[in-house]
Design a protein around this nucleic acid. Structure first.
Lengths: 242, 242
DNA sequence: CGCTGGATGTTGACACCGTGAACTTGCCAT
DNA sequence: ATGGCAAGTTCACGGTGTCAACATCCAGCG
């Protein structure tokens, strides 16, 4: 005899007497979380529909009531991963304490954004890879993941792909750059180029640290990260101002 | 009636009366080339053993006489892609003409290496993704792809993963940095950090151009690339020398 | 020259996977 | 209460990676 539906609800749903419109509390959410677990262990390609359903205790095809196909699930997991990335950045930003020098502080916040990015990549390589794995990898439609999509809300009701502040990773980067603009350490004309440069550089270093440069001692990695971010900032900052 | 083995040889082998030790001229090579075709069209995940065997006109399990498993084939394709990457760099380097100023020339050659990298990524995104897709993505053993492996030679007998000059992509980068060292535009103490920085930056930009920044006009991409490489070089070059 | 052994390729089978179609169940509004 | 629709199930199909057993062909030996 298998579990009855109500039993499943008790097992899977978060305990509390939360009213549930569907047979299974919130299968959509449960599947995304199961998929996140799979992605954490094995990257985007480890997200397997049948296994996710199995972990939730539901038949394989039940997933098709919530996702049109596998790539849909992967994308939902990717959005969650993007949220986690943004939260990692926010955590680094929270450690920035003002020093009086506006320019230095602004640059410091840019560095914090980068550090949050890289630290997330290193601590959650599977989710990181998932966040940036294009749905069909080759036919990427262009434009970064943005909140324009029609995706369900996050677990805690936040904006899809956003961190606790409600901002997505690229928005946090943009905010840091705007801070540099205000502080006068970045030319307005360079802002968009700077965004690309910073993002690309940090992304590239993350890839390197996860791949060819993996296995280095954490301290060596940390030193590498600092030197790298220093280089990026040095390149971005207006020539005359530092 | 199916093709006889000798017929297959005539179809698949490169025409010439090259003696063949195996039943099928060179199944190993043929499978790698079929896999390369698949990777070109759909990235590493499109490399499918059965389809590669099908394209070669051979039974699916024949591949297991040459590759222990699918990841082995993928890695062989990745090595070929690495060779193509090195050749793309060499092509850019060949367009560098000396200008008399050793420092400027050295920096120009570093830029050429980067341009070759990015151009390869843009012109062969599938192979590019394959080249840097870790075998088991998460359990990357560390260290960059190097010729220490026990892999078969390239089609034309070159070193595995190397370009026409016999150097791998990272060796070409190293050579460019050494040139900067000799020209005095790079501190010896910064060389290794510079290698990481340059590689990471260029890799990141490639990813960006293939993903979020795809769809931009080629001219805009080219401008972005130039601005980016300029930034990198500006950051790398010894402060006082330029 | 004929034989034989090992490398090469084939067939059959199994367990997975993604996905479609048809069926069943249970909740909600009428 | 009841009919309809959303949510979940079962059955089925083609595709994939991989193992085991079998067939074939070439090289090197007598």
């Amino acid at each position: 005899m298998k579990f009855t539906v109500s039993t499943l609800c008790l097992v899977t749903a978060p305990g509390a007497g939360r009213q549930q419109r569907y047979h299974h509390g919130d299968l959509h959410r449960a599947l995304v979380e199961a998929g996140t677990g799979l992605a954490r262990e094995g990257g985007p390609s480890a997200i397997v529909l049948r296994e996710a359903a199995r972990r939730v205790g539901v038949s394989a095809n039940a997933a098709y009531r919530h996702f049109s196909a596998l790539p849909d699930l992967v994308q939902a997991v990717a959005f969650d991963a993007l949220s986690a990335l943004a939260r990692s950045m926010e955590a680094e930003l929270a450690q920035c304490s003002p020093s009086g020098d506006a320019g230095r502080d602004a640059i410091g916040r840019l560095g914090a954004v980068g550090r949050g990015y890289i630290h997330f990549a290193l601590s959650e390589p599977g989710l990181f890879a998932t966040a940036f794995a294009p749905p069909k990898w080759t036919t990427y439609t262009g434009q970064a993941p943005t909140r324009s999509g029609n995706h369900a809300a996050r677990t805690d009701g936040g904006l899809p792909g956003a961190g606790d502040s409600g901002m997505m990773a690229n928005e946090l980067l943009g905010q840091a750059l705007d801070g540099m603009l205000d502080a006068g350490v970045l030319d307005a004309a360079d802002r968009d180029t700077a965004a690309t440069n910073a993002w690309g550089a940090v992304h590239g270093l993350s890839m390197l640290l996860l791949g060819p440069l993996a296995g280095q001692a954490p301290s060596a990695q940390e030193a590498l990260i600092d030197a790298y971010l220093d280089l990026i900032c040095r390149g971005l900052v207006t020539r005359k101002s530092i």
